[in-house]
Nucleic acid binder design. Structure first.
Length: 277
DNA sequence: CTCAGTGTTCAGTG
DNA sequence: TCACTGAACACTGA
């Protein structure tokens, strides 16, 4: 599921269901991969009977602020997500998830919470690359302390952005994916940003001019705000976005651009050579 | 059967 | 020490 917009959607869903309420039941799946570092039993003990004060997000990490520490932090890997019977779950074009109809708890559930008043939350993760961990001070301990600026809420000034980018010699695509640079930019969003900023993803970051880095910075902001505002429902993204074409190889855009695909920064990258220089 | 895939981390290299 | 690269992780679905 996750790119920043889906994590933000999960954050607001959890906020509606759980904030201000006490956790009255906890079930943890027997999965030592997802529960890495903190056992299912430890997580259960930390959550049961606690009141949820707030839900925070930084980059693609999410955590619950409880009335007693430690607090749980969640990362969704490639296929994790949150579900609640009260909230229609977001579906993403790229997720490939098949809807198998009503099923509760959903297939691949890892953590199930019931809160006072009847609300319920479930974290799922098919591929098990997601993580549930406990931290006493999430913001100031790894992995969250290692993140760069939050791409949605902490975008630096144009000048500062250029100064962060200029020392880096890796391809700009790889730098955008580095969570220690910008927290929350994932694979398709990096491609979308570079497409709209008209920058070739292979360009080395230190070769970009201030005008070019300013375009990238501004597109990080606008792409993320739009994606978050439509609840990460891909069908509602503007028709002009690369998003609608990047997964169908060999199919030109409606306005005639041919896309190229190549692995950059370890990830499949799509771009339009005719307009990205 | 093979392969790609919304992500992170770690080992190895220069 | 640092920046960077590529493999590993574990599994689903095409």
């Amino acid at each position: 599921m996750p790119e920043l917009p889906e994590v933000e959607a999960a954050r607001s869903a959890i906020q509606r269901v759980a904030v201000g309420r006490r956790i009255v039941a906890v079930r943890c799946a027997d999965d030592h991969i997802v529960f890495q570092g903190s056992s299912p039993a430890q997580v259960r003990r930390a959550l049961l009977g606690r009141r949820v004060r707030a839900v925070h997000r930084r980059g693609k990490h999410l955590w619950l602020e409880l009335d007693r520490r430690p607090w749980p932090i969640f990362h969704f890997g490639m296929t994790g997500g949150f579900h609640s019977p009260a909230v229609k779950s977001v579906k993403l074009k790229s997720s490939g998830n098949k809807d198998r109809g009503p099923q509760w708890p959903p297939r691949f559930w890892k953590l199930q919470l019931k809160v006072a008043g009847g609300g319920e939350l479930v974290m799922t993760d098919a591929r098990r690359l997601g993580r549930i961990r406990l931290r006493h001070d999430p913001r100031n301990e790894p992995p969250i302390s290692l993140l760069g600026f939050d791409a949605l809420h902490e975008l630096p000034s144009a000048r500062k952005f250029y100064e962060l980018l200029h020392p880096r010699r890796a391809p700009i695509k790889a730098v955008l994916l580095d969570q220690g640079f910008a927290a929350g930019v994932g694979n398709w969003i990096a491609d979308e940003v570079l497409y709209q900023a008209r920058i070739d993803p292979r360009r080395r970051a230190h070769t970009l001019t201030p005008a070019e880095t300013a375009r990238i910075r501004s597109k990080i902001g606008s792409v993320l705000r739009k994606a978050v505002s439509v609840g990460s429902d891909g069908d509602r993204f503007p028709r002009s976005w690369l998003f609608h074409y990047r997964w169908d190889r060999g199919v030109p855009t409606a306005w005639g651009e041919t896309l190229r695909h190549q692995t950059i920064g370890g990830r499949t990258t799509a771009w339009a050579p005719a307009v990205q220089k």
